[in-house]
Amino acid sequence: MSDAEARARRIVTDAPTDLIVDRLAAELLRTYGITRTELFQVDYRLAELLPLGGGESVTGPGHPAWYAFDHQEPMVADGTGWFPVGMRGERRGVLRVSPAPADPAARAELATIAAVLGHELAAVTSTTDVYLTARRSRRLTLAAEMQWELLPGRSRIRPSFALAGQLEPAYAVRGDSFDWSDDGHRLWLAVLNGFGEGVAAALLTSLATFALRNARRAGLSLADQAALADQAIYAQHRGRQHLAVLLMEVDLATGALTAVDAGSPHLIRLRAGAVTQQVLDKQFPLGMFDGTDYREQRFQLARGDRLFVVSDGVVDAAAGRIRYGESALDRFLRHTGPLEPLDAVRSLIGDLRAFVAGDLVDDAVVVCLDWLGPQPENGPDQ
């Protein structure tokens, strides 16, 4: 690591939370002669790159900023450099610098500094509203604010898997959600198809998510996690409200997948270009009845498998009286193979928006999981 890179790292980690980019800009001016440094964050819809200090957003898909964001590679065009800002697969945006240094070593250092910035933004986001406020092009509804705060992130990459998810309508989502966690040996994934409207739906999803997390962190099996969350919801609502969820657990050493379908969203597998609806044992949604017992199913993933989990809001999206439907969904998913999970998710959401000619009316959640195959236990985390 060069002295310049080390100083920039210290500046980023030591700066006041609201002045991280300003202090970094001053350091890049001193060290690299960069006169303009600007952070662009991707918005909640994955449709705009919004400048932290306000101003014109970047929306055009052919823009160098989007190339850097989409490919997670630095891009230099017309003397301006765009460097991906993210953390462990979670894409936050891009860092704009101009004039971009001509020296390849300096550009490599800037790429590392942008990655450090991504980690630091993740560390401070819970302590300041500066970066969250700048990520939105319009006001979030209260229910949507609750739902986005509940998420573990929007994408995740490890040597054995890649994962991404998105909620729609992004600025007004109510009850659909997802949750995930991994410990290097197992990956847990929950996709929730919410019930109800507004804040009531967000509260129900929050209760289910925290109940599932509590059970998972207690080391309970997948079936027992569903049972505990079921009891928590029933105790609160006595069957008047319920919630559909698909729970999955993947053994990262073998690719063995365990699932519990509690009235769940759709599970679709893309293998070698073929799309298959995964048949699941339909069981009662969480909170519908008192003391429901849940059963687990087991499947074996093959290296290169891609799984999509989509809620009813995807297949039921309608343009007038025409429903998007399973056939259109299957046809579209077949063409997502070359895309990274986040790009596949964003592409599907974009197709839905085009189909309905605007934002979706009903909630929709899309999650994409790529099984890359067993990897060495101490492989690098990204």
Results as ranks from 00 to 15, higher is better:
Leu52Val: 05
Ala256Cys: 12
Leu270Asp: 09
Ala235Cys: 12
Gln297Thr: 14
Thr13Gly: 14
Tyr294Gly: 00
Leu151Lys: 04
Ala274Asp: 02
Ala318Trp: 03
Asp290Leu: 00
Ala144Asn: 08
Ile268Leu: 13
Pro374Trp: 04
Ile349Ala: 08
Glu5Thr: 10
Pro99Asn: 10
Trp66His: 01
Met75Phe: 01
Ala4Trp: 14
Arg136Asp: 12
Asp330Cys: 14
Ala8Lys: 08
Ala162Ile: 11
Arg323Cys: 10
Pro380Gly: 09
Asp293Pro: 06
Ala100Ser: 12
Ala164Met: 03
Ser160Arg: 09
Thr112Lys: 14
Leu301Thr: 14
Leu19Glu: 09
Arg7Asn: 15
Ala123Ser: 06
Arg107Phe: 03
Ala302Ile: 15
Gly81Trp: 02
Gly60Lys: 00
Ala274Trp: 02
Asp3Lys: 10
Val367Glu: 01
Val94Ile: 11
Gln166Glu: 11
Leu187Ala: 13
Thr205Ser: 07
Arg353Tyr: 05
Val260Ala: 11
Arg303Trp: 06
Val250Cys: 15
Asp22Thr: 15
Glu109Ser: 10
Gln278Thr: 02
Asn214Gly: 07
Asp179His: 02
Val12Arg: 07
Arg334Val: 12
Arg303Asn: 05
Val279Pro: 05
Gly165Pro: 04
Val310Tyr: 07
Pro341Tyr: 12
Val58Pro: 15
Arg186Val: 07
Thr254Leu: 13
His63Trp: 07
Leu142Phe: 09
Pro376Val: 09
Ser347Cys: 08
Leu369Thr: 01
Leu117Trp: 14
Lys282Cys: 03
Tyr171Glu: 02
Asp183Phe: 05
Thr209His: 03
Leu246Asp: 05
Ser155Trp: 01
Asp330Arg: 06
Asp182Phe: 07
Arg156Gly: 04
Val361Asp: 09
His266Thr: 15
Ala105His: 07
Ala111Cys: 00
Ala364Arg: 05
Glu149Leu: 05
Phe299Leu: 13
Gln241Leu: 12
Phe308Gly: 03
Asp362Asn: 08
Leu150Ala: 08
Val245Asn: 01
Arg107Ile: 01
Gly55Pro: 04
Gln382Ala: 09
Ala259Val: 08
Val124Ala: 14
Thr80Glu: 03
Val314Asp: 11
Tyr324Pro: 11
Arg213Met: 02
Ala122Ser: 03
Leu117Cys: 00
Arg323Trp: 04
Pro376Ile: 04
Ser2Lys: 09
Pro61Thr: 10
Gly358Phe: 00
Ala272Val: 14
Gly33Ser: 11
His71Gln: 12
Glu38Gln: 05
Asp370Thr: 15
Asp129Ala: 07
Gly184Asn: 09
Asp183Ala: 01
Val116Cys: 14
Ala318Gly: 15
Glu73Asp: 02
Met75Leu: 02
Arg174Ile: 12
Gly325Gln: 13
Thr141Ile: 08
Ile11Asn: 08
Ala105Pro: 11
Arg158Leu: 00
Ala114Glu: 15
Leu286Lys: 10
Ala211Ile: 14
Pro376Leu: 13
Gly379Phe: 11
Gly93Tyr: 04
Glu27Thr: 13
Asp363Ile: 11
Asp18Asn: 05
Leu243Asn: 09
Gly62Glu: 11
Leu252Met: 05
Ala229Gln: 04
Thr276Glu: 10
Glu48Pro: 10
Thr209Gln: 00
Leu50Thr: 01
Val361Trp: 08
Leu163Gly: 00
Arg9Glu: 09
Arg88Glu: 06
Asp176Asn: 02
Arg88Ile: 00
Ala364Met: 03
Asp316Trp: 04
Val130Arg: 06
Arg156Lys: 01
Val12Ala: 06
Thr292Val: 01
Thr141Ala: 09
Ile268Tyr: 13
Arg186Cys: 05
Gln225Ala: 04
